Amino acid sequence: MAGVDNEVLIIENNDEASVWTQKHEEIFIELMEEEVLKGNKNTITFTKQSWKYIKEELCGRAKRNYSDMQLRNKYNQLKQKHKDFKSLLKETSMGYNAVTGEVSVTDEVWDKLIRVNKSAKRFRKKGCKFYEKLCTIFGDTTATGSNAHPSTRSPSNDDDAMLISVLMKMVTKEERKTELIERSMATSASHYLLDESVEALNQIDGISGEVYTKAIEKFENEVSRALFLKMPEHRRIDWLLNLK
């Protein structure tokens, strides 16, 4: 996944909608955000191991194979989308809704914006739904801007309220980061038990290929792996010979 910061590449069949559904794009964004919160992204891009994890998880959840080129292309497209929307929010007349990702301005303002900047047209109807997540991914700590406000309240200059909001976001991100780290540690521990179980199985002589295969299938279950490792060697053999 080297070179993801290069210019946007064109998808092979030139039909993005057929390659990236909205749900798949959402999964891709969420995976990248998780990796950022886990500290697996430097100032330029994700680590090689992190890209491998993102690709495997995306293909697994989407049940579709994505190539490195398609991931690189989508990454750069989203980066450009974040840049364009951020530029749009700098307009003093823009009202941004952080909940829906939409912007609220008159048709007259939209027409003027589009005449000056054609990229604004893409945000007119739906805004940028995952802008907050894109800000996390691409290192922008000023996601909401001076005109951003939730739909339940009007823009305010109340510094205390803004400070509380910022602190709440920081706490939420830290909690999310802790959750991801704990999940990662649990996954690592689970894989470790699998390696130990297979190694212990390989040390047992005289078992048939059929029994060996059945044991490997049983090791897909975490409880079976743990029990097998706690058994003395002669009980392991009994367990293997009684597998069905």
Rank of each mutant, 00 (worst) to 15 (best):
M168Q: 15
K169S: 06
S224G: 00
I204Q: 06
S184E: 15
V211F: 05
H191T: 07
D205L: 13
R235Q: 12
R225G: 01
E210D: 13
S197V: 09
E233P: 05
I237W: 01
I216G: 08
L167H: 14
L227I: 10
E220M: 02
I164Y: 09
Q203S: 14
R176P: 11
A189P: 14
S208G: 12
E217Q: 12
T178S: 09
S190F: 13
N221F: 01
L163N: 07
T213I: 09
F228W: 12
R183V: 10
I237N: 01
H234N: 13
L229R: 07
T178Q: 14
S184F: 00
E179V: 10
I216N: 01
I237K: 04
M162I: 07
F219Q: 00
I216E: 01
I181Y: 14
N221I: 05
H234R: 09
E174I: 01
E220F: 02
S197M: 02
H234V: 05
A226V: 15
S197I: 00
K177V: 05
L201Y: 04
I164H: 06
M168K: 15
I164E: 03
F219D: 02
V198G: 12
T213G: 08
R176Y: 09
S188A: 15
E233M: 05
R236K: 05
L180F: 03
D205S: 15
L201A: 00
M185G: 04
